[in-house]
Write a protein that binds this DNA or RNA. Structure first.
Length: 401
DNA sequence: TCTGGGGTCCTAGGACCC
DNA sequence: TCTGGGGTCCTAGGACCC
């Protein structure tokens, strides 16, 4: 890719995105303390009113109900969020050629000089963009514009919600860097913060000005990249064409309560996870030849194992047969298990499956044909209509406390 | 923060080869 | 051959992200 020195980078970050999407279709909820996450047992997104009450991300629902009974608790509606994401994408493409969907509620865009010129300046461009988003989607995004991706990402955080922060001069950058604490930097997590603090680095400005050689010596490569990016040297590119079929792994995990030591119950959860993950893999026409699975104890200890399959597949039957011999070993000493997960790795497209000696794709058929037929029925009648026998919940088990 | 679900990338170290 | 050096590939696990 050619790097033009005058290119800028934009980051758009949806404000309380899931909640904002819900309010866009239920305007009567506007102004109320609203959270999304009811179906997962913790608050995943909060309206500003809910935040003001003291609800934080990850707070358990039972606790919210007890402390703040006035909070409106909603479940996820991913179809709605994806729809708004798609329309946001369309709007951005009217303004920029190169955009990247970074997550469901965040995007980057490469802002080329000609695009700025067309609107008569950065400020005019972004004001027009924000106006169109709000009027069309009825949600708001906080926007950052800067010389690099990492700077744009920090900029969008500075005036949330509904912010518009442009870091176009060195002075702007310095001010923003000084205002950004070390534990609020994209790419610096819990483990690295104490190491940096020990070196006397308190904010992004200190970080950028710390000797590069020392950072290189003491930390991993991504941190060095981050230092340069925050210093104004563009290294990270906007990666367009994010295609679900380029995904490298797909997982399905689930937590259940009460935690259990019963291998039958735990295996049933794993079985459901395997089916769910396979279904999602088939939806985008991929197959896997490496599967890992884990159990997590009530003390949050992970036990994980994996199997390499002899062929590429998206058939839960094949996968469960391969996992089963390792399952009891995984459970170890009768620990209480609170959650399980199945992860399909090495995903490739169905048509990329290596051919055998006779030039045929290895027999993917038989069972997979059955699964594909079942997928069609699910599409028509809903996800839970068909399940494998090992995933079926016995009523007695479910109704017991 | 008593704690959900879904991802990516990097690195150290072992296996294997010459 | 009990002994050097160097390269590649793979995997487990860590760290980070939303």
């Amino acid at each position: 890719m050619i790097k033009q020195s005058k290119n800028l980078y934009l980051h758009a970050d949806g404000d309380s995105f899931f909640v904002a999407c819900e309010i866009s279709v239920h305007p009567e909820l506007k102004g109320l303390p609203v959270i999304v996450g009811g179906d997962r047992g913790i608050a995943v997104a909060m309206s500003s009113e809910a935040k003001a009450l003291g609800v934080t991300r990850g707070m358990p629902i039972f606790q919210i109900k007890k402390l703040f009974p006035q909070v409106v608790i909603l479940s996820h509606h991913f179809d709605l969020y994806h729809d708004i994401q798609r329309r946001m994408h369309e709007i951005l493409l009217k303004y920029f050629c190169t955009i990247e969907e970074y997550s469901i509620d965040e995007c980057f865009a490469l802002v080329e000089p000609s695009e700025v010129k067309y609107f008569g300046g950065e400020k005019k461009l972004l004001t027009a963009l924000k106006k169109e988003i709000e009027e069309t989607l009825h949600v708001t995004y906080s926007i950052g514009l800067a010389k690099t991706k990492a700077l744009a990402k920090q900029a969008s955080k500075l005036e949330k919600p509904n912010g518009l922060v442009m870091l176009l001069s060195k002075e702007d950058e310095v001010k923003a860097l000084k205002a950004t604490l070390i534990d609020n930097i994209w790419g610096i997590g819990r483990k690295t913060v104490p190491d940096l603090r020990r070196l006397g680095i308190k904010n992004a400005y200190d970080f950028v000005n710390y000797p590069e050689k020392e950072i290189e010596k003491k930390f991993s490569k991504p941190l060095l990249v981050l230092q340069k990016e925050l210093g104004g040297e563009p290294i990270l590119e906007v990666e367009s064409n994010i295609n679900p079929r380029d995904q490298k792994s797909i997982q399905s995990t689930s937590t259940f309560h009460p935690a259990s030591t019963d291998p039958k119950i735990i295996w049933r959860e794993i079985s459901e996870n395997a089916e769910h993950a396979c279904r999602n893999v088939r939806k985008i026409k991929l197959v896997s030849n490496k599967v890992s699975f884990f159990v997590k104890t009530s003390e949050f200890k992970y036990y994980i194992d994996e199997v390499k399959l002899t062929e590429y597949t998206a058939d839960p039957g094949v996968i469960l047969d391969a996992l089963e011999p390792k399952f009891l070993k995984l459970l170890r000493a009768k620990k209480r298990i609170r959650s399980t997960g199945v992860i399909l790795h090495n995903l490739i497209r169905e048509e990329e499956v290596p051919l055998d000696l006779f030039g045929r794709q290895k027999k993917k058929l038989s069972n997979l044909v059955v699964e594909e037929a079942a997928d069609k029925i699910r599409k028509k009648y809903g996800e839970d209509i068909i399940k494998r026998a090992s995933s079926l919940r016995k009523r007695e088990t479910k109704n017991k406390k």
